[in-house]
């Protein structure tokens, strides 16, 4: 499956999104799915390290950090601010 459009990597700091699709072919991405990054989960881009990589996301209240290369495997639908 190829992922296009908005991904976790393109969320801005403070922006929320709901995961729509995951390209699960990479075992490392499967590992992230075990941590709860699956379709239907709402995530917020909380912070990034200097240079924008890795990135930190909030998922049901817990922080989880991933590298940009992995964040690109998750397609998201941004949630409008305030929504």
């Amino acid at each position: 499956m190829s992922i296009n459009g908005n991904t976790l990597a393109s969320l801005k700091r403070g922006q929320k999104g709901i995961i729509q699709a995951v390209d699960a072919s990479d075992p490392q991405v499967q590992r992230l799915m075990v941590l709860g990054l699956v379709e239907g989960a709402e995530v917020e881009h909380a912070s990034s390290a200097i240079g924008g990589d890795p990135m930190e996301f909030r998922l049901f209240g817990c922080g989880i950090s991933l590298r940009q290369e992995h964040a690109r495997h998750f397609q998201v639908a941004p949630v409008a601010a305030g929504g």
Binding site: A24, M33, V34, G36, G40, A41, F60
Partner: peptide, 26 residues
């Protein structure tokens, strides 16, 4: 990938449970 499917199915169940037991969003 089986692991991915396992995560999808069980986390969907978890989200249903959360709605029922967690009274307010954090």
């Amino acid at each position: 990938p089986p692991v991915a499917r396992d995560a999808r199915v069980r986390y969907a169940w978890v989200r249903d449970v959360l709605v029922k037991v967690q009274k307010s969003a954090p």
